[in-house]
Amino acid sequence: MTAETLVSADPSFKSELLQNLSNLRAFALSLVGRADRADDLVQETIMKAWSKQESFEMGTNMRAWLFTILRNEYYSRMRKAGREVSDTDGEYTHTLAVHAPQEGSMDMQDFQKALEELPDDQREAIILIGASGFSYEEAAEICGCAVGTIKSRVSRARLRLQELLGVSGHADYGPDGNSAAVTGRAFSA
């Protein structure tokens, strides 16, 4: 054993974890849709990651490692909650968008709602690939499935989101007065 492996509270473990927190939070919120639940999930992930830090090899992809922990935690909670919370769930869904990012909120809220509509596997796939910045290979590893599976989930997610958001190519997009006005403003600002 080298001296390095004996260092327990590796300061760079903490700082690397910190650096990844914003991205991890965004992933959690995209996954669960509620800020309080998302942050609970992040907190649990921090504690799990901390207790498992010996199993993490510095220099490897900490982000993927953290995302994997968070994802596992999410699904194990879902399984538990499936039994207990199912009937109160209806009340919660209304407050889903409460967190709603401050600016551009209509757009954001619509998007968050649409995201909620996706099946879990499609939602996580499109987030990991489209927003978190992972490769298909990394996403496959995080989700414990084949690369091809991730690819097909992402494309199904895209199609479904297009449907839900009414984004269906040329006809719908261009001539829409509303969005044209918004785009115009954004460009002139």
């Binding site: 914003s22 939070r25 965004a26 919120l29 995209s30 990012p101 401050q102 600016e103 551009g104 757009d107 954001m108 998007f111 968050q112 995201l115 499109i126 987030i127 489209g130 927003a131 978190s132 895209r158 989101l161 297009q162 958001l165 984004v167």
Partner: peptide, 12 residues
Amino acid sequence: ITRRLKAYYASV
């Protein structure tokens, strides 16, 4: 879709 997803994610 990707643009909106990124904007949403980035806002968090």
